[in-house]
Amino acid sequence: MFATSRLPKLTLPMFSRDPLTWQTFWDFFYVSVHANPNLSGIQKFNYLKAQLQGDAARTIAGLPLTDLNYGHAIALLEDRYGQHHKIAKAHIQAFLEMPAPSNTLASLRIFYDTVESHIWGLSSLDKIRAIIW
């Protein structure tokens, strides 16, 4: 038998408009809120609105708080930020704009980690094969 322990409460991430952070935001929100059968559409919509800021918040600002509009809000956000080709383009653009590393171990480690991060981001979209081949 496993001992039960209380895990700390998770804090939902904020999202403003960066396509590089959309998938992480959506996956976390999906598991924590969207797929929760104990929450109504209005409650989910409230959670969603609370986690958006800037351009993303303005994307759905005009939608009244209703069950039906929760689905509309998700569709609007997916259309604007969740399209794989836009996310892939953002990864490639960020990769191309990376500054060259200096000859220090710390700089090379940061460069390597950043490149690896973009490769994993593209790989999760199934875009890496198209770029390499």
Rank of each mutant, 00 (worst) to 15 (best):
F2A: 14
S5R: 06
R6W: 02
R6V: 01
R6I: 00
P8Y: 02
L10T: 07
L12Y: 01
P13T: 03
F15E: 01
S16L: 03
S16M: 09
S16D: 12
R17A: 15
L20Q: 04
L20K: 01
T21W: 00
Q23T: 14
T24Y: 10
W26P: 01
D27F: 06
F28H: 08
F28A: 09
Y30A: 09
H34D: 14
N36V: 03
N38Q: 08
N38W: 04
N38C: 06
L39D: 02
S40C: 06
S40K: 09
G41L: 05
G41P: 04
Q43N: 14
F45E: 03
Y47T: 01
A50L: 09
A50I: 05
Q51N: 15
Q51A: 12
A57C: 02
A57S: 14
I60G: 01
A61D: 13
P64M: 06
L65Q: 10
D67H: 13
Y70W: 04
H72A: 12
I74D: 02
I74A: 07
L76P: 01
L76R: 11
R80F: 03
G82Q: 04
G82S: 08
Q83I: 15
Q83P: 03
H85N: 12
K86P: 05
A88N: 02
K89W: 10
K89Y: 10
A90V: 04
H91F: 07
I92L: 15
Q93F: 10
Q93P: 01
L96C: 10
E97P: 00
A100G: 05
P101W: 04
S102P: 00
S102L: 09
L105H: 12
A106V: 15
L108W: 08
L108S: 08
L108N: 09
F111G: 02
F111K: 00
V115G: 05
V115Y: 05
E116R: 13
H118M: 06
I119S: 03
W120L: 15
G121C: 05
L122Y: 01
S123L: 05
S123I: 03
S124Q: 10
S124R: 12
L125F: 06
D126R: 08
I128G: 00
R129E: 15
A130R: 11
A130G: 10
A130M: 11
I131V: 15
I132S: 10
W133R: 14
